[in-house]
Design a protein around this nucleic acid. Sequence first.
DNA 1: TAAAAATATGAATAATCCTCACATTTGCTA
DNA 2: TAGCAAATGTGAGGATTATTCATATTTTTA
Lengths: 206, 206
Amino acid sequence: MSNNVKKMRRAPTQKRSRERVENILKAACDLISASGSDTMKMGELAEKAGVSIGSLYQYFPDKASIIHALAQRYNEESQHCIDEALAEVATERDLITAFDQLIDTYYDLFLAEPVICDIWTGTQADKTLRDMELEVSRANAQLLTRAILRIRHNDGDASTFAARCLLIMYTGEATMRLAISVPASEGREIISSYKRMVRRELSEML
Amino acid sequence: MSNNVKKMRRAPTQKRSRERVENILKAACDLISASGSDTMKMGELAEKAGVSIGSLYQYFPDKASIIHALAQRYNEESQHCIDEALAEVATERDLITAFDQLIDTYYDLFLAEPVICDIWTGTQADKTLRDMELEVSRANAQLLTRAILRIRHNDGDASTFAARCLLIMYTGEATMRLAISVPASEGREIISSYKRMVRRELSEML
DNA sequence: TAAAAATATGAATAATCCTCACATTTGCTA
DNA sequence: TAGCAAATGTGAGGATTATTCATATTTTTA
C-alpha cells in the first residue's frame, strides 16, 4: 500500500512539541468544522492553536498535509472500528448483525464529527485525498472479504466478489455523507435503506 | 429548489461574448482535465481561452463560479439523460432494462470525460458543490420515483421509498467515481455489481 | 455618423501560503 | 551548576495567484 501522506517536516520528540502538534490538529479540526478547509487560514490556525505561523511549518510541510493528517487519523480510527466489529464473526447471522451495528456506529461517528465529512470533501491541490479514500475503502473491503471467507459457503468469481466488497465499503462512505447532509429523520431512513441493501448483498455472497 | 450557482457577472448578449464564454468553459474543461481545478490558474485559463484576465471576470465573479458553471452544465446533461431513459418505462421489466442501460451510459460518460469527476471531487471554497450534488441526486431520485409510481404494485412507506430512490442515485454517482478510479477491468466489475444491487433494490420496490 | 452601451484589457492591488535568518528553550555533560 | 549543542519557536517578508478597476476598443442604436 502506497503512503500518500506527506511526512511531517520534523518528528516532535520533546513532550512540548508533541503537545503542540496535538494543539494544531485540534485547532484545525475546530476551524474546519466551523467553515471548511478552504476557509481555514494558516494565520487563524496558528492563533487558535496558540503558536506562531512558523511553528506550523516546523511539523507540517504545507496546509494540505495538516488536512491529510486529520484524514489519516480518522482512517485509522475507522479501520480499527471495522476490524473490531468483524474480527469475531463466525456465522452468516453474526456477520449481518455485526455489519448492521457497524453502520450505526459509523453513522453516529459522522453525526458527532461532521468535520470528517468536511475533510473528505474539502480542498486538495492534488489528488491525495481521493487516493486515500480509495485506499481506505480497499482496506475496509479486505476486512470484509476476510470475514466472509471465514464463513462462506458459496464460491462465485473471486474478482466479482472483491468488487462487491469494495462497492459496499465505498458506497458506505458516500451514504454517510449523504445521511448527515439531510434532515435527521431522512438520514435515518437512508441509513436503514443502506442497511437493507447491504444485508441482501451479503446474504447473496454467502 | 434553491439555486446555488453564483450568477454570471454579466449575461453575454452579443454573439461575440457568447462565444467567449464558450471558449472559457471549454478551456477550463481542458485545463481541469489535465491537472485538476486547483492547479488551474486564472492566467493560464485566460491565455488558453484566448482572452484577457479581465474578460474572465466580465462573466464569472470568481474562479469557483467557473467550476460551478461546468458542474451545472453536466448536471443538466445528466438529468436530461436520466429523464429520457425513464420517461417511457411502463413495466417492471422496462424499468430494470432502462436503468441497466442508463448505468452503462453514465459510465461511458464518466470514462469519456473524467473532468466530471475532477469537478465533483476538486476544490470548493464553499459547500456549494456538495449542495449541488445533493440537489442533483434529489432531482434524479424524483425522476426515478415518478417512473416507479407509474408501474408500481407495492405500497410501502412513502418516506422510506423516497430515501431508497435517493440512496440509489447518490451512491450511483459515487460508484461512477469509484469505477473510473480503478483499472478498467475492475471498474467493469464494479459497474456490474452496482447494476445487480440496483436491480434487486428496484424489484423489491415494485 | 455620432453618441451610448457593451465589451475588452492588463497593470496594480489584495489575499494568502510559506520561507528563513535569527531568538529562545531544552537536554546533556563535566 | 555552568556551558554548550540540539531542538524548537518566531514573524516579517518573499512568492504566488485571485481579483479589481480605470481606461481603451468594439458594437449597437438612433
